[in-house]
């Protein structure tokens, strides 16, 4: 673990028991939401976690925040282990890790003004108790989130704001604690394309100005292309491929990454290409397929894939993919 690493996750697992068993003989079945996930995030880096609904990417974020207790594995934040903190320590840690949620229409309290919403984290954490100090921090956060001039926004309520402005308020209330890590769970998927660009650009600027690290969770590879440094592709609770964005997008190795990439809509009819459309949806994570968990939907699966749980294969400078068919001559 180098000095420059802000977050390290080792063999993280999060299983949820399912309650269909008898009251005194609980079911031993479990949902394998996150299943042996390891990665690191450097200071000032943007790592995108990509996958379909149900691949465990949101559970991963909740576990990192300590909102879910991990079943196994370790999480290191800023050099310290934070896997199983008590409530008081968790609260301190959460000053430094903030989350941006998906839906700016539902994550703001409609009865509070923008100023009150952004000040609330300070109140919760008992920071900046003097009034003028608190106002100054709120103003700075709103400015950083691009809500200028601040005075025209601070007394408004969420219903007076557009979707893009609301998402900026959500970002401002995350920034007010001056966190070093942002967990952004699909922060633009509810927004129009033109506003999407605005919010993504804001996150890019924040990283450039404040050196903030961002874990960006999304199902859309096209938003990843514009600003992440590295990307991790998740399938059924596992990372199947990870590497620098340029490497993964231009030369994907895992058949799942290839399929995901092929279905990203390209805004040019001349570039219509064959799409690898996987049938069905992510299988349920209760009965995880044997061997490679992608084999039932994989277009290139062979018999061995049902038996062998593929290890990671190193491709190039940090790009790794878990598929036993990598390196075979392509037909």
């Amino acid at each position: 673990m180098s000095q420059a690493t802000i977050l390290t996750v080792q063999n993280l697992r999060k299983y949820f028991p399912i309650g269909n068993g008898h009251l005194f003989r609980p079911s031993d079945k479990q949902v394998h939401a996150v299943d042996d996930v390891s990665f690191y995030l450097e200071k000032g880096e943007v790592l995108a976690v990509v996958g379909e609904s149900g691949c465990g990417k949101s559970t991963l974020a909740l576990t990192l925040l300590g909102l879910e207790k991990p079943t196994a594995g370790q999480i290191f934040f800023d050099g310290k282990e934070v896997t199983n903190l008590n409530r008081a320590d968790l609260k301190i840690m959460r000053r430094h890790i903030q989350m941006i949620f998906q839906d700016p229409y539902e994550s703001l309290n409609p009865l509070m003004t923008v100023g009150e919403i952004v000040a609330e984290p300070l109140v919760v954490h008992g920071l900046a108790t003097r009034k003028n100090e608190r106002t100054a921090r709120v103003q700075k956060a709103l400015e950083e989130a691009g809500l200028n001039p601040v005075d025209s926004y601070i007394n408004r309520r969420p219903h007076e704001l557009s979707g893009g402005q609301r998402q900026r308020v959500v970002i401002a209330s995350a920034l007010v604690l001056e966190p070093s890590l942002l967990l952004a769970d699909e922060p633009v998927s509810m927004l129009d394309v033109s506003i999407r660009a605005e919010i993504l650009n804001l996150l890019i600027d924040l990283r450039a100005k404040r050196g903030i690290s961002i874990l960006f969770i999304t199902h859309d590879l096209s938003t990843v292309a514009s600003f992440a440094d590295r990307v991790a592709v998740m399938y059924l609770g596992r990372i199947v491929e990870i590497g620098a964005v340029a490497d993964v997008l231009q030369d994907p190795q895992h058949p799942y990454t290839k399929a995901l990439l092929s279905v990203v809509p390209v805004a040019n009819p001349r570039l219509r290409h064959e799409r690898i459309i996987l049938q069905g949806e992510t299988p349920n994570p209760i009965d995880v397929p044997t061997g490679c968990r992608f084999h039932p939907r994989c277009p290139i699966a062979i018999e061995a894939c049902q038996r062998i749980d593929p290890p990671f294969v190193e491709i190039r400078n940090g790009q790794r993919a878990a598929c036993i068919r990598i390196g075979e001559p392509t037909t």
Binding site: V193, S194, I195, R196, A197, E198, L200, N201, I204, L221, S222, T223, A225, S226, F227, V245, A246, L249, Q250, L261, V264, V266, A267, L271
Partner: peptide
């Protein structure tokens, strides 16, 4: 304003 997978890291205009 539409992100393009073919050109990573190109700046989006809003």
């Amino acid at each position: 304003a539409f992100p393009d997978v073919a050109h990573p890291h190109s700046k989006l205009t809003s």
